[in-house]
Design a protein around this nucleic acid. Sequence first.
DNA 1: AACGGGTGCAACCGCTGGTAG
DNA 2: GCTACCAGCGGTTGCACCCGT
Length: 262
Amino acid sequence: MGRSPCCDKANVKKGPWSPEEDTKLKEFIHNFGTGGNWIALPHKAGLRRCGKSCRLRWLNYLRPNLKHGEFSDEEDRVICTLFASIGSRWSVIAAQLPGRTDNDIKNYWNTKLKKKLVGLVAAPHSHKKPTQLQYQQQPPPTGAATATPQDVFSSSLQLLQASPASVSGHYAQYQLMDEYHEVLQHYGAADVFDQSNFDSNLYGGAGGQEWPGSSSSSELAPLEYGYHEEIKQLIATNNSSSSSSSSNYYNIIAGCNNTTFE
DNA sequence: AACGGGTGCAACCGCTGGTAG
DNA sequence: GCTACCAGCGGTTGCACCCGT
């Protein structure tokens, strides 16, 4: 048996919202709030819309203090960093970017950031990347039988963050993101993450969404949290071998010196 | 001017997890 | 413990707009 639909599909309007509908929704929520029940809201507000549609419209467009327009370099950096850490958990990423919605960030990632990466790789001045074999040669984290893509990327990003300021910046970040993307493809993309393990690492296993030690939910979580020991281990291992793949990453990053990204 | 492909964004869909009864 | 309901989430789609030919 299937579940009952959330609304009468035949009697709800779909498609773009009109200014009148926007006004009705805004005024209703301003006067009465959502009442904790989005399903009942459209009827009360005199809207022929599905409750889910109202919720989405409010959260993504009508809600106060929303930012529209270009993402800043800093926002780019946060998105890349968090994507590297937690994957496509857009709501979690959005929580770190005040005024941005998960839908915004998802669209931005899918339409712009991802393409920036691809463009960089295709660009003539792109630097040689490690091969997939080199990914496989990455040492596994402590206690793991094999290195996961996430391990590889985490170590790469950590190397980047630990490197001198001259080698940081968008180009290097995006270069790493692309490597990450390639690793995902190599591993079949789908079941790369042990999500529960990720959550446990990311949130300290407490089940909450606030970073341990953080007094504010808007505080940016330290990237290395949860991976700290694994990453240190990886760095230690990589640094001990001059022919290790970590030096490939250093070469890539070093090659980005004085490269401006737009 | 007309057309077609590309792009960006708003909105929808289907699923999951939480929870009240 | 079970069921039904709801909010929230991520993936996907539809469409308006832009731009090159």
